[in-house]
Computed example of a mutant assay.
Amino acid sequence: MLTSQRKQLILEKLGAEGQVLSRELSLHFDVSEDTIRRDLRELAAEGRLQRVHGGALPSSTAIAPFAERKALKIDSKKSVARKGAQLISSGQVVIVDGGTTTSELLTFLPQDLRITVVTHSPGIALGLVDHPCIEVILIGGRLYKHSIVTVGAAAIEGIGNIHADLFFMGVTGIHPEAGLTTGDYEEACIKRAFSGRAAETIVLASPEKINTASSFVIGDLSLINTVVVESDTDKAWMKAVREKGVSVITTADPDNE
């Protein structure tokens, strides 16, 4: 079998099963584990998968530049954002992470909703400028231009002065075993810090993030309380997430009025 054929079959197996293990692939293709590791290494370099200990997971497409991500799965993002907005109550302090899905969340906040929003995203802050009842606290720091959010020591210090009710965490991958991941080390640190200052952490998960992984770990699923997904999300995935103690809300669930 040609190397290119084996790689394609590995990707097909990954797509069908959600993960692959080096040892199992070695036996399946009757080649050495070194050969499989080389295949996985080359596929990872092409952005086709994310290597993890012992094998690989699907690579998240949500690590593209902000402008590209904004047009990705836009209807799905709007759908989960609308459902997420229903989890917010008047009087709360709500941390809103940077990201394209959390940006959509803003469009579903009622004009009479009185909350305080804390964010390290200048875009999120500007998106709330014209909202009549929402106070905005913008966390400062070094601007990470890829995601248009602030990071670094100053941001961590500012986060330490907050007690929030909710945190809407942005992720690039959410996987029952690999946990919550993102494409930048400093962003992962910021997300962990925000989660530690909120009573409840929520992930709005559009389809490209589900069952995928990126290079930097935010934490395992115990870090979050709730994930909001589309109603046609894989049932086995939802079951696996619920077994980790996370509440799964779908867009088909009754509205919280």
Rank of each mutant, 00 (worst) to 15 (best):
L221N: 03
G219M: 00
S215P: 10
P207C: 15
V248K: 00
I218W: 12
S222T: 01
V227D: 07
D234W: 02
A205Q: 10
S247R: 09
V248G: 00
I218K: 06
I202C: 11
F216K: 07
G245P: 05
S247W: 09
K244C: 02
S215E: 12
T201W: 12
N225D: 09
A240R: 00
A198K: 06
S231G: 07
G245Y: 05
I210G: 04
D232Y: 00
E208M: 10
N211C: 11
S214Y: 10
A205E: 11
V228G: 10
L223K: 03
P207M: 15
D234R: 03
V217Y: 15
V217Q: 13
V229I: 14
K209R: 08
E208H: 08
V246D: 03
M238H: 04
A240S: 07
I202Q: 12
V227E: 07
V246H: 04
V217G: 09
S231L: 06
V241G: 02
V241D: 03
S247G: 11
D234L: 05
D232G: 02
M238Y: 02
V229W: 05
V228R: 12
P207Q: 10
E230W: 07
V229R: 04
L204T: 09
D220Y: 06
V228H: 14
K235F: 04
G219I: 00
V246Y: 04
D234G: 05
S247F: 11
G245A: 07
L221V: 01
S222Y: 05
S231M: 06
T212I: 07
T212C: 15
L204Q: 10
T212A: 11
E230M: 14
N211F: 12
E230P: 03
I224R: 09
V229D: 04
V227F: 10
S222P: 07
T201K: 09
S231Y: 05
L221D: 00
S214V: 13
